[in-house]
Design a protein around this nucleic acid. Structure first.
Length: 831
RNA sequence: GCGAGAGUGGCGGAAUUGGUAGACGCGCUGGACUUAGGAUCCAGUCCUUCGGGGUGGGGGUUCGAGUCCCCCCUCUCGCACCA
């Protein structure tokens, strides 16, 4: 339709601001538990308040917000909260660099980012906002810590830990990636230190079991967690040490090869390595070796392809045949796994084979495959397959499978070993030698030792008047006034623990606290928590597959076992969204390919940015940022705006189409409207926002054609059908682009907000077509098409196909062998 | 090495149970309107010798394969001396 009078231009800045104020004023995002609707808890991983949002955040939260709004429109009582993962290193670094305080820096960032969230139009219940650095939050974490101490779920030990020198702190195993610090990427070293540990290994079995029940999680994440937990079935076997009363315990998954064990290998950190060599000629050699290997970083040691070791001077006795075997310390044995000692079977383990060849150690073949014995001297590599036992005394002739049970059972009768299960998972080291974290509520007393702070004396508030040393360390040990306290047991002088907790502890339970952020009687208000938990849909990055997502699962189970929560698992369904990339690489300052959300929102408005980030790729996949693609999304909204206003104009006072005869063009649009409702509804349920948006674009394209069709000028149903189409479009687009749609909805004559409107329902009758296109194939290739009545029977379809001119041309003189008819779709003629 | 996932136009990506490959968008080409347009609207846009041929390569199942099966190649991610 010609634009005779100037239509008002789409001005996102003005429209978006106005509607954000409306939503705020009407408090439409507030929710409580008093609802008859089914509850739905939608949560996105909360951000670290780094300063400003990046595109990855925008994508994550746009996906989440679309789901939250959609679920609400579809009749759920939706909890959708936001908060801040506010403790952590960057605040300390920034504070030193800017000569400010981490608290000031953090809270200023929070204020700025909250503003950015509001400008995006995200539907958060801001009454529930929390920041983990608030005492009102971490005080409850300290209480849980003290209770965990009471239950033996926390302990302190002196052990080898991962140390990041740049961050000046210890890291958990999960926080070391490829031998490097997960935050700053610098090489991680091994260091002997005291630290607190959460006994996550107590829950290894349950954590593993539930990975088979979390049907709403991506298989990828579950597999990663299973591998991380690393359950393996095997045996623990005691090897007595020659000339001593004690024994060295080994773990093996191949007890069937026990008779072939001709030496033993210890991890360099194994306490026996030094002890056994003391006083022997090997003493100095072992010390040198342990010292040298021990100083190598994780990564360096893993890179070491060369098997290397040193004889300790001592011998062990193979418990099954009394064979005297030398004990070595070896660089490839991990103290972390099993018992730190390995029964070496060079014939059937490749590492042991290489080691044996290097040091001239004995080989005894005890497993024979279908091709018969290889012969020790012929072996060029270890035979690691299962087979039949030989040279194994009473077990000769047994299969590996049977022997793996029979040998440990036999050992157990004699008290020399047993079948066992080993996990790769280690306890979670939560001590951080940092300032900006929740203080660990423990006290050191010279008389009484280590005691937890009494619950009634909590919280142990982090002193905020600290000045950060420029060296990068924690100021806490220097704060005498804070450190000096009294012993909770004897009342005498004592010192506070100066380690703080890993920030992953805070993020391990924030989701539950959102149910009751104001509760002051304990960590969680049982009633509200159990109403909302578990989270129905969690949305976040894959990078937390074994960090946050494993810790949270553990912590939920701990809280459950303390009676604080009923849920077994925190997150029912998990959506892991892909990264935002530009020019083929993840956006980063160093690559110079960063797109700033503020700038984009300033230029195009939040609706455009949201729409593009949903349209450009399905959620789980990486999204390639494209400035031209953003333009495209913006064009679409402009188009919708113009058509919307045109319909507002021409269909004022007209109701959306309900019934009555329609001319063919209008009937097509009416049908398209209902097809689109069906498609968008189904796609959105499956999180396929990209195709949902594509469907809406198609509908808008068709509206545009009808709107311009002058032959319909006098059609009495024109306005009603156009209104129906535009209303459906606006309603269904509103979860993705909430501002422009509320504005158009309002101009279409509705007072309320789309968030509170009814999601459209498609009419199956409207979908029915009188005629359907049927495809004619010959040998599977399309040779013709025709419009036929939708209810035409198979025989009619067949005859029409055979009668088709093009089809006849292709058949020619050849005999028709077979005809396949698919109702209402195609006819395939085989010749 | 082990495990998981993915290979479709110039690009991002569609194709829900095997049934018209390339929806939608970007880009590009042409046109309309216009003083002008990087606004808007319309048309076209996989290749083609016009017979056909096309979803990383090769084989198979089927009336019919992007989709199912087997082999191979490439890429991404995770784990990586786990005894």
């Amino acid at each position: 339709m010609a634009e005779n009078n100037k239509l008002e231009r789409y001005n996102p800045a003005e429209v978006e601001k106005r509607w954000q104020q409306q939503w705020d004023a009407q408090r439409v995002f507030d929710v409580d538990e008093n609802s008859t609707k089914p509850k739905y808890y939608l949560l996105e991983m909360f951000p670290y308040p780094s300063g400003r949002l990046h595109m990855g955040h925008v994508r994550n939260y746009s996906i989440g917000d679309t789901l939250a709004r959609l679920k609400r429109m579809r009749g759920h009582n939706v909890l959708h909260p936001m908060g801040w993962d506010a403790f952590g290193m960057p605040a300390e670094n920034a504070a030193i660099a800017n000569k400010t305080h981490p608290a000031k820096w953090t809270y200023e960032n929070i204020d700025y980012m909250r503003g950015q969230f509001k400008k995006m139009g995200f539907s958060y219940d801001w009454r529930r906002e929390l920041a983990t650095c608030d005492v009102s939050y971490y005080r409850w974490e300290q209480l849980v810590f003290v209770k965990m101490w009471g239950k033996g779920l926390v302990y302190r030990k002196n052990t080898t830990v991962n140390w990041c020198d740049k961050c000046q702190t210890v890291l958990a195993n999960e926080q070391v990636e490829d031998g490097k610090c997960w935050r700053c990427d610098s090489e991680v070293q091994q260091k002997q230190m005291y630290g607190y540990f959460f006994r996550i290994t107590d829950y290894a079995e349950e954590l593993l079991e539930w990975t088979h029940k979390l049907e709403g999680w991506p298989e990828r994440v579950l597999t990663m967690q299973r591998n991380w937990i690393g359950k393996s079935y095997g045996a623990e076997i005691d090897f007595p040490i020659e000339g001593r009363d004690d024994a060295i315990k080994v773990f093996t998954t191949r007890a069937d090869t026990l008779f072939g064990s001709t030496f033993m290998s210890l991890a360099p950190e194994h306490p026996m390595a030094i002890e056994l060599s003391t006083g022997t000629a090997q003493e100095q050699a072992v010390k040198d070796f342990v010292d040298r290997v021990g100083r190598q970083s994780f990564a360096d040691r893993a890179d070491e392809k060369q098997k290397e070791g040193v004889f300790t001077g001592a011998y062990a006795l193979n418990p099954v045949n009394g064979k005297r075997i030398p004990i070595y310390a070896a660089n490839f044995v991990l103290m972390d796994y099993g018992t730190g000692a390995v029964m070496a079977v060079p014939t059937h383990d490749q590492r042991d084979f290489e080691f044996a060849r290097q040091y001239g150690l004995e080989l005894v073949e005890v497993i024979v495959g279908p091709d018969g014995p290889i012969g020790e001297s012929n072996m060029t590599e270890a035979y690691t397959n299962y087979g039949t036992l030989v040279n194994s005394g009473r077990f000769d002739g047994m299969t590996s499978d049977d022997a793996k049970k029979a040998i440990p059972a036999w050992l157990e009768e004699q008290g020399k070993g047993k079948q066992t299960i080993n996990y790769r998972l280690r306890d979670w080291g939560i001590s951080r030698q940092r300032y900006w974290g929740a203080p660990i509520p423990m006290v050191h007393c010279e008389k009484c030792g280590l005691s937890p702070v009494k619950p009634e004396d909590l919280p142990v508030a982090l002193p905020l008047d600290a000045e950060l040393p420029t060296t990068g360390g924690s100021p806490l040990p220097l704060l005498d006034e804070w450190v000096n306290t009294t012993c909770p047991v004897c009342g005498g002088p004592a010192k506070r623990e100066t380690d703080t907790m890993d920030t992953f502890v805070e993020s391990s339970w924030y989701y539950a606290r959102y149910a009751c952020p104001d509760y002051d009687q304990g960590p969680l208000d049982p009633e509200r928590t159990n109403y909302w938990m578990p989270v129905d849909q969690y949305v976040g990055g894959i990078e937390h597959a074994v960090l946050h997502l494993l810790y949270s699962r553990f912590y939920t189970k701990v809280l459950r076992d303390m009676g604080m929560i009923k849920a077994d698992e925190p997150f029912q369904n998990l959506l892991t969204q892909g990264m935002v990339i530009k020019d083929g690489a993840k956006m980063s300052k160093s690559k110079g390919n960063v797109v700033d959300p503020d700038e984009m929102v300033g230029r195009y408005g939040a609706d455009t940015v949201r729409l593009f980030s949903l349209f450009a790729a399905p959620p789980e996949r990486d999204l390639e940022w494209s400035d031209q693609g953003v333009e495209g999304a913006h064009r679409f909204l402009n188009r919708l705006w113009r058509l919307g206003l045109a319909v507002v104009d021409s269909a004022a006072g007209v109701k959306a189409y309900e019934s009555g005869e329609l001319s063919p063009t209008l009937d097509d649009l009416h049908r398209k409207t209902h097809e689109t409702i069906k498609k968008v509804t189904e796609d959105a349920e499956r999180f396929q926002f990209n195709t949902a948006i594509a469907a809406l674009m198609e509908l808008v394209n068709q509206v545009s054609l009808v709107e311009q069709d002058e032959s319909l000028a006098g059609d009495p149903q024109r306005a009603a059908v156009l209104r129906e189409a535009v209303e459906a479009t606006v309603t269904m687009l509103s979860p993705m682009a909430p501002h422009i749609t509320d504005e158009l909805w309002n101009r279409l004559g509705y007072d309320g907000l789309l968030l509170e409107a009814q999601w459209p329902v498609w009419d199956d009758q409207a979908l029915a077509k009188a005629e359907k296109q049927v495809v004619f194939q010959i040998n599977g290739k399309v040779r013709g098409k025709a419009m036929l009545p939708a209810d035409a029977d198979d025989e009619t379809l067949k005859q029409t196909a055979l009668g088709d001119a093009k089809v006849a041309k292709f058949i020619g003189e050849k005999p028709v062998k077979k005809v396949i008819v698919v109702q209402g779709k195609l006819v395939n003629i085989v010749i």
